[in-house]
């Protein structure tokens, strides 16, 4: 994939050497960064071992937060996507506003709006017995992330449903299936396969975005990192956290590629 058509034209002799020099220099910089962080960790492995254990607990919180949000978001996204495709104006308009709001504003601002904004309405939430939800920062983060990812997942799903060929629905109708049956047995499964790749991206975006929870006192991986940094001012703690995020994201990405290959193998000829 890297051997693009034009590369042979760029790489004339003179530039080839320059490219090699630059490449070696940049790789050297990356290696230097990795080596200096590795050296710091090895030379004081007792301390970093302790950090690592704490960070693992934080990573657990991160995965829990992201996992539950994605599930709730998936459930919410179905009616949203259907409303976005609806023939009636009102649900279409409301779903459009919902999606536009959550995609048009920063996740961090939404988080503050719910955590600090709704925190001011304690009496109201107590009377409707919902204060337990807004009292806890973890639940607040869960709520915001779920609502946010629901908007993005709804758009993914809507696009995917729209791209399932019309003939599929018509075939279902010709076979005398009910509309509900057609949707759940014919349209949705095909749409989900089309949506597989954007879903994978959405999961990665959520893992990364979840670091925001640390600002509202949740001790996720980022929260534990900031707590450790604030006591030690050791820059390597950030690099250690970066490595852990990278491992999470890269593992997921690779697993997802395999999953996609497996689920779409019937499409290959």
């Amino acid at each position: 994939m890297n051997h693009s058509a034009h590369s042979t034209y760029i790489a004339r002799d003179k530039i080839f050497t320059a490219a090699r020099l630059l490449g070696v220099f940049l790789l050297f910089l990356w290696a230097l960064l990795a080596a200096s962080a590795a050296y710091a960790v090895v030379s004081d492995y007792a301390t970093y071992g302790k950090y690592f254990a704490t960070f693992l607990r934080g990573a657990g919180t991160t995965l829990l937060l992201v996992g539950i949000s994605l599930l709730i978001g998936a459930v919410l996204s179905l009616p949203l996507a259907l409303a976005r495709n609806s023939n009636t104006l009102l649900p279409r308009f409301l779903a459009y506003c919902y999606v536009y709001f959550f995609r048009g504003t920063p996740l961090i601002a939404q988080t503050f709006l719910v955590y600090y904004g709704f925190g001011g309405f304690r009496e109201f939430f107590s009377t409707v017995h919902l204060w337990w939800l807004f009292r806890d920062p973890f639940y607040c983060a869960l709520l915001v992330f779920s609502l946010n990812t629901a908007a993005y997942q709804a758009e993914i799903l809507r696009g995917a449903i729209a791209s399932v060929p019309r003939g599929q629905t018509e075939a279902g109708r010709a076979m005398g299936l009910s509309p509900l049956m057609i949707f759940f047995k014919i349209t949705l499964p095909q749409a989900l396969i089309i949506a597989l790749r954007p879903y994978g991206n959405e999961i990665i975006i959520m893992i990364k975005g979840s670091a925001i929870a640390s600002i509202i006192t949740v001790f996720d991986l980022m929260g534990e990192t900031r707590r450790t940094f604030s006591r030690t001012f050791d820059y390597n703690t950030y690099l250690l956290a970066a490595l852990m995020y990278l491992v999470m994201v890269e593992t997921l990405r690779r697993v997802w590629v395999k999953l996609e290959q497996r689920l779409t193998r019937h499409l290959l000829r």
């Binding site: 790789l27 990665i204 893992i207 970066a242 890269e250």
Partner: peptide, 26 residues
């Protein structure tokens, strides 16, 4: 990333993998 030189490609690919994989806040 489109360069014919493998070292330059590798350095660029590490860059995009790292900074697309890290939380923006981090």
């Amino acid at each position: 990333q489109n360069s014919q030189d493998a070292t330059l490609r590798a350095a660029a690919n590490i860059y995009t993998t790292v900074f697309r994989g890290l939380p923006e806040l981090l």
